[in-house]
Computed example of a mutant assay.
Amino acid sequence: MKKLIYGITLLILPFSCISQENRAIKKSTSSKQENLVIKPEHFIGKHKAKVMILGIFHFNNPNFDSYKKQYSFDILKESRQKELEILLHKIAKYNPTKILIESDRIKMNDRINEQYQQYVHDSYDITSKRDETYQIAFKLAKKLKHDKIYCTDAPSEWFGANLDWDSYNREAYLKSTGQYNKTSRYDYNALYRLHDSLTSTQSLTEHLTLINTPSNRLKDHQAYLTETILEGAGDHYVGADSVGRWYRRNLRIFANAYDLTNFDQQERLLLIYGAGHVWQLRQFFTDSPDFDYIETNSYLTK
């Protein structure tokens, strides 16, 4: 009887070992799969990229926004040029590998880089050009010895309701639907006027530090979610579509930045964009597994 039990044990033992080995393999495989899921570096390339967005007010404001600029600011003044040098010195410490600007990628990239190459070789004069593309991006890129600048903006065509815009009266419409009081609870124009006025009293770095503070960027973003979005709810949804169009443009900007990032190198992207873009782009980069977002004020306040 003992011999029989011993024989059965010898027969079962190899199968038991095989079973334990299979379980160990499955556990190891499962663990590796989990690691692949939770570790973003396994998805693409060798490195995550760092990204920083310098939110700016447009030096040569075309006044396309609903708020029209009321206070003067001249970046070409000698005092402002000195302030600009201080700003460039601070941003240069971030040591970006690529500078991305608010200019149409498809239409403007070749033209901007042709100008930049001429500027690098001292054959393109920017002393009369107020735009931040020239005053910040060109000067910073030359200072850092970059070969080129990257245009990453993209238009976003209107995809909402086709209204008779010539006769459409937003205020009258909102009052007729009972939406006016809710959309006008917050006086965002007061915020815009305040920031506009401070451009004439603060130094360049002081003002950019103010507008790049995350709480200020959130407040500006919230205008889309209170003042804009309600218009046409339950009808033509022109407000929601306007916000969607704004998101669409920023998603295209993010897509361009992603496309231009080399994850096999230790990239450090710098985006120079109107401050209104910062909150959404910051969210996209922060949510992405492939970027480490750097707050601009960590350099502006040094």
Results as ranks from 00 to 15, higher is better:
residue 6 Y to D: 10
residue 11 L to N: 06
residue 18 I to N: 08
residue 22 N to P: 02
residue 24 A to E: 10
residue 31 S to D: 13
residue 31 S to N: 14
residue 38 I to F: 09
residue 42 H to G: 01
residue 46 K to I: 07
residue 50 K to R: 10
residue 54 L to Q: 06
residue 55 G to T: 10
residue 55 G to H: 04
residue 57 F to K: 05
residue 61 N to I: 08
residue 62 P to E: 04
residue 62 P to I: 03
residue 64 F to M: 11
residue 67 Y to I: 08
residue 77 K to W: 00
residue 82 K to A: 11
residue 87 L to Q: 01
residue 91 I to V: 12
residue 92 A to M: 02
residue 94 Y to E: 03
residue 101 I to G: 05
residue 102 E to K: 07
residue 110 D to G: 05
residue 114 E to S: 13
residue 116 Y to P: 01
residue 119 Y to L: 00
residue 120 V to C: 15
residue 126 I to T: 11
residue 127 T to R: 14
residue 133 T to P: 00
residue 134 Y to K: 06
residue 136 I to M: 01
residue 138 F to P: 02
residue 141 A to P: 00
residue 143 K to R: 15
residue 158 W to E: 04
residue 159 F to P: 03
residue 169 N to I: 07
residue 170 R to G: 07
residue 174 L to D: 06
residue 183 T to A: 12
residue 183 T to M: 11
residue 186 Y to I: 15
residue 193 R to A: 13
residue 193 R to H: 14
residue 193 R to E: 10
residue 199 T to K: 15
residue 200 S to F: 05
residue 202 Q to P: 00
residue 204 L to R: 03
residue 206 E to D: 08
residue 207 H to F: 09
residue 208 L to K: 00
residue 217 R to I: 14
residue 217 R to A: 12
residue 232 G to V: 00
residue 232 G to T: 01
residue 233 A to M: 14
residue 235 D to I: 01
residue 242 S to G: 00
residue 249 R to T: 07
residue 251 L to C: 14
residue 252 R to V: 06
residue 258 Y to K: 08
residue 263 F to E: 07
residue 268 R to G: 05
residue 271 L to S: 03
residue 273 Y to E: 01
residue 278 V to Q: 07
residue 285 F to Y: 08
residue 286 T to H: 12
residue 293 Y to T: 00
